[in-house]
Each structure stands twice: as structure tokens, then as C-alpha cells.
Computed example of a mutant assay.
Amino acid sequence: MTSDDRDPTAVAEPDEPVSRSSHVDTRDRPKKKHLPVWQETILLLGIALVLAIVIKALFVQAFYIPSQSMEPGLVKNDRILVQKMSYWFGGTPQRGDVVVFEDPGGWLNAEESAGPTSAVGKALSKVGLYPSGGHLVKRVIGVAGDTIKCCDDQGRLLVNGQPLDEKEYARVGGADCYGPMPAGSSHCNWTVGPVPAGHVFVMGDNRNNSADSTVHMCLKTDRDCTKNPYVDVDDVVGKVFVLLWPSDHFTFLHRPDTFADVPDAS
């Protein structure tokens, strides 16, 4: 057989590149240097801090219940998580939502407004890892256009004429209705609304012990009253969706079914 008859693919051309991967001595390659443990720890803490800031700014924040106003479901000093994205993209608070909002002005006393006092608590509150002060937690009863009346002959609140069945989550504390006013007022006989656009009317679930919208209403007997019972939706941080701590109370919060029956404002 002549050389012309041989399989040309059996022999590499002189200037054809030949793989030399099998001949490379990897022992001579410089090894990657690992960071010292203390540097890795600082790096991980930095990443965790950045993530915490992003999460707080965009998604979830921790708060605590500052008073007894949301009992029996939420007890003073319970830790809760708030969905900050609940009302993004045009969404607004809905009837029945439990929301956290900034103090509209004068709704909280000095102790409730203070928040954490220790340096560690203050630092953690900045990134959403510790509850901050200056906020309230209440349930939305009325939204823009709604009229709220207290009460029917069974002591139930009426929203746009529809009575609410609130036995599941609210406490009256010896009152005769689910919307008692402070002592010295007309108690179970009041009407408020329509709720202005961009605002909500809120109440604590502990109806006889809650400094909520009912405390800031102007009564017929008030002269030159400038009080405002409504909360601007721009002051709403988000919707409470988890009771986080104590662990034996852990639960997800849901909008009560009774609010589904409320008609839109006419």
C-alpha cells in the first residue's frame, strides 16, 4: 500500500494544532487564595446587612403591637410581619385588612412613639430586624366613599348599610355594641363618612380599649372641631400577614369573610 492509499485522517498535518490537555501539569498552577475567616465573616455580615435593608425597603418589615387595642388576636408586644408590597401598583387597603401605619399626629403617647431605646435595638430597627416605634396597628373598617354607622339593634357596625359579624375577631369589653365611643359621648349612636378619597377609617379589635378613628371623630356637641378620624393611605406601611412571635401564637392573618358582603359605596 502506498502512502497515497492511507487514510488521511489517521495522521495529523504538521501544522494542525494538537490537544495537549493531557500533558498539562496542573500541579504548577497557583492555588486560589481563600480569605481569612475574619474577613469572610465580615463579608457575610455585610451581605446579610444589605439584604436586610433591601428586604425592609421593598418587601417585609417587623413591628410589634404597642398596646392592648388589637386583642384578642394580637396581644401587646406580639411581633408581627408586614407586607410592604401589599398595596403596590395601584392597590389600596381593603376593608378587614389589619394594617400598620405611621402616627397621623397625636394618636400615640410618648412611650408608644419612642421605639427601641438601646443602641442595638435602634440599629436593628433601621434595617427591619427590630420593631420600630411611632406606628399603629388597626383594622380597616371603611375605605373611600364608605359610611360607617353604629349600631343596629344587635350592636353591630354597619358599613354602607351592611351589618358586620365581628364575633370572630373583635372584643367589646363589656360595651353594648361593636363601636363604643369614649365615655361621655353618645356611645353606640354615631355615624361617620363618607370616607374621603385616599383615606381609610380604622378601629382596634378591642373595641372598648382602642384609641382609633372613633376617638378622633368630631361629635355633634363639639364646637370648632378640627379632629380628623381618617388615615391617609400614604401613611400605611403595609398589611399584617403573620403573627410571628411568640412562637406558640404563630399564625397567618386573613381578611374576615364578613367584609365580603359589604356593598360598594353608592
Rank of each mutant, 00 (worst) to 15 (best):
S67Y: 02
S69V: 14
S69Y: 10
S69K: 12
M70C: 09
M70P: 00
M70G: 04
M70H: 04
E71D: 09
P72G: 05
P72S: 08
P72Y: 06
G73I: 11
G73P: 00
G73Q: 13
L74W: 02
L74Q: 03
K76A: 12
N77P: 00
N77A: 13
N77S: 14
D78S: 09
D78R: 05
R79K: 14
I80T: 03
I80P: 02
I80V: 15
I80Y: 01
L81C: 07
L81H: 04
L81W: 10
V82S: 04
V82M: 08
V82E: 04
V82Q: 04
K84M: 12
K84G: 04
M85L: 13
S86C: 06
S86L: 04
S86Q: 08
S86R: 05
Y87C: 01
W88A: 14
W88G: 13
F89G: 03
G91S: 12
T92V: 14
T92M: 10
P93H: 02
P93R: 00
Q94I: 07
R95K: 13
R95S: 05
G96L: 06
G96R: 03
G96I: 04
G96K: 02
D97T: 01
V98M: 14
V98Y: 01
V99K: 04
V99A: 10
V99G: 05
V99S: 07
V100S: 00
V100A: 03
D103V: 12
D103E: 11
P104F: 13
G105D: 10
G105Q: 08
G105A: 09
G106V: 10
G106N: 09
W107Y: 15
W107K: 06
W107D: 06
L108D: 10
A110V: 12
A110Q: 12
E111I: 04
E111L: 03
E111N: 02
E112S: 12
E112R: 06
S113F: 07
A114M: 12
A114K: 14
G115L: 11
P116G: 12
P116L: 11
T117I: 09
T117H: 08
S118M: 04
A119Y: 06
V120A: 15
G121I: 01
G121H: 00
A123M: 11
A123G: 13
L124P: 02
L124E: 03
K126N: 09
V127P: 09
V127G: 09
G128R: 02
L129F: 01
Y130W: 15
P131V: 09
P131R: 05
S132E: 14
G133H: 05
G133C: 07
G133Y: 05
G134C: 06
H135S: 13
H135V: 15
H135N: 15
H135K: 14
H135I: 14
